[in-house]
Design a protein around this nucleic acid. Structure first.
Lengths: 188, 188
DNA sequence: TTGACAAACTAATATTATTAGTTTATAAAT
DNA sequence: ATTTATAAACTAATAATATTAGTTTGTCAA
């Protein structure tokens, strides 16, 4: 890591993201390892993040913002089923590219953490809009959102954890799963 | 905890399961806490499990066996869609009753750990059989298994993590999700 | 040039896990 | 009933990590 005497929160967080993604999990990232990568002593990190817990929150924020950006971008100029499929693929791509911090994007944010709460609800809102364009509203839409989120999270979580043992194309499984669910949701 | 001088692996593991389920996660269970609950010193635990990693494996085994038992029991004397819905509910019930060890049941087992590998594949086999009775075979069945597992895991994982914020009946969401997916899989 | 302040440091403490080596209790064999 | 082998408990020591307190240092602005 560079020798730019004088860190800041951004450098600390981005380095942590890098290390977490390299190892595949934020849980194995120690402050010791992070400090070494930044070429400072461990206590110096406390000038920028509030210990382990503070770092975890920063990583969650970083991850949620990146995820939202990716998903929003995927939905641009698309509607209905096409948009939902695009979002699904963007979601999975994000998880694959950020295995070390993906999990943090769906931790329940502390009820007093407005910033996280806010970001956390935006994904739901986005999907709700798209389901509306499919004709789903009210409670039916809310149930469908839960179904979709479960589907997406379940797949990428199992995929990342190596839970799918069989030698069968994962892209194909994912595509089929999404389409099957949407098919059940809004039969043609 | 009882004072039965002379522990054994079973007591150690079952106490660990209890503590993990009480706190909601195996990750926060320390050997220190476990030893205190058993009224022994920490190093004594090493006579029964091989450190943290060994304990984690034991918990995974315990969890997988319990999950398999629950799911098999739910499927007795049922076929087709009815059996799959029953399995889904049993899966969720298990996760709710065992929040502290559920996650361990879908960790990818080490490739040299035959016992875990074996148990891990049995759930897949069971679902495959039931899908067969729905008329799904070959690759289509394998993709469907992945979809179902994603659905189930995603829902219970989000539910346990408090990821569903809205004040909307969770049982209803779960039931609808499963039915919608099966509907998409095998349209009536 | 100097002085204030933020950011780095050192030092000390607490928690946890692990290993080595010793003592003790139990259960089997005499 | 005694003895003895062994498994299981213990103590002690070490290493890794996180955290806090207090000190030093470097930078920027007056």
């Amino acid at each position: 890591m560079a020798k730019s005497r004088r860190l800041n929160k951004q450098i600390v967080v981005e380095t942590a993201v890098l290390l977490a993604n390299q190892s595949g999990s934020w849980q194995t990232l120690t402050l010791t390892e992070l400090a070494a990568a930044l070429d400072v002593r461990v206590p110096s990190l406390y000038n920028h993040v509030q210990g382990q817990e503070g770092l975890r929150r920063e990583l969650a924020l970083y991850g949620l913002e990146a995820l939202l950006t990716a998903v929003r971008h995927a939905a641009i100029a698309k509607i209905g089923q096409e948009a939902l499929v695009a979002i699904a693929h963007a979601y999975r791509t994000f998880a694959q590219a950020n295995p070390g911090i993906y999990e943090l994007t769906l931790q329940a944010p502390a009820t007093d953490d407005n910033e996280l709460q806010q970001l956390s609800s935006e994904l739901v809102t986005l999907i709700a809009l798209l389901l509306g364009s499919l004709g789903l509203t009210g409670d039916a839409a809310l149930h469908a959102i839960r179904g979709l989120r479960s589907l997406l999270h379940g797949f990428v979580s199992l995929e990342m954890g190596g839970g799918f043992g069989l030698p069968l194309d994962l892209d194909e499984s994912f595509q089929q799963m999404v389409v099957v669910y949407l098919q059940g949701l809004v039969p043609v």
